[in-house]
Design a protein around this nucleic acid. Sequence first.
DNA 1: AGTATCTTTGACCACTTGGTTAAACCAAAT
DNA 2: ATTTGGTTTAACCAAGTGGTCAAAGATACT
Lengths: 201, 201
Amino acid sequence: MVKSKETESHIHDAARSVFLAKGYDGARMQEIADEAGINKALLHYYFRSKDKLFESIFQEAFSKIVPQLFTLLTGSFTLREKLGGFIENYIRVIAENPFVPGFILHEMNRNPDRIVSMLSASGIQPAMILGALSQELEKNNVYVPDPRHLIVNLLALCLFPFAGRPIIQGFLFGGDKEAYEVFLSERAEIIKEFVFKSLGI
Amino acid sequence: MVKSKETESHIHDAARSVFLAKGYDGARMQEIADEAGINKALLHYYFRSKDKLFESIFQEAFSKIVPQLFTLLTGSFTLREKLGGFIENYIRVIAENPFVPGFILHEMNRNPDRIVSMLSASGIQPAMILGALSQELEKNNVYVPDPRHLIVNLLALCLFPFAGRPIIQGFLFGGDKEAYEVFLSERAEIIKEFVFKSLGI
DNA sequence: AGTATCTTTGACCACTTGGTTAAACCAAAT
DNA sequence: ATTTGGTTTAACCAAGTGGTCAAAGATACT
């Protein structure tokens, strides 16, 4: 009883690390059990099936990364503050969960319907975010043909350095891990400057 | 003999479609055989193992997407032409192979060493590209603290809309496939404007 | 102590997986 | 017509897969 909660969280930790690293198809229940230091049967005692366990991990990952979109709306005064706050916040959250972007990017391809239903279940209203952003841009006399491109640009600039780490680190940094970490730590400032200049704000 | 080449390309086509859609771990040799309209044993007759077959597909995908980086160097006169040419060219190539970015992004995590060795085997010199880009920026009086950020920005802006299609299409376009295709067709122009403005050129 | 409930395990199962093999097939050369 | 070479197949195999089960350990309550 006391121990059960602990075991459950051990399992969850193990499952997270294995699923995030290898994806659903590449993950093995035995490996998760090993990493949790328990028997494979106990895995099924706590989470009835691989799907159930995966679903739990996926939801957790999803909830870490997607609701952050709301920070695009937080009540800052200037457009710069709003966008800058979003970028800083988003980069910080992802830096704490660096494997989540790649994980979700891959897994949503295996089941695109789920991501759609999770988005609607999360209560996020794209029209609302989009509307608020449009209004804010207008107020600041920033003309963009379609604010959706701006949102995609923001997401791309924030997420890609994490999702594509192996290539970038290998190609531009000769595999130097520390150098790439420095690079990542500079990203928020770089992106802010990049975006602000392109919007003329 | 005549037929063998044809069969081999059928297999290759089938393997490409299955591997790109499901990744190495999610792909099944039986499914590839089915899609190629042949027996599973014949698969092993042409490509000795799943690994061999996969390697062939991965190399093909890699060669489609990575060497395009060289277009950053092509002999255009202005910086705008160079960057604009790269963006247009890259978007066009990816649009023809829309599943390649997500595929590589995922598979390189399963085997980061391979991507490193493939990069060096491809003869691409990061220092050369980086140096040429730096020089060009300087010549145009564009100051950027680190040109690597610019390269990552370019790649992010071009690749992410394809790799992250399900989320974006689901979230910003209500799942409307046609609307998203229009959106994608606008990307090259949008990215060019976005980048040029941010660089002040 | 005894017992009822939850937790943990080793052994096991049905099924799928990548891969093999021996034989059949088939076109071209003799 | 027979041989020869590459091509194709059905049947098969060992290893691994997710999942189950009955029994053994704990734990708390009476």
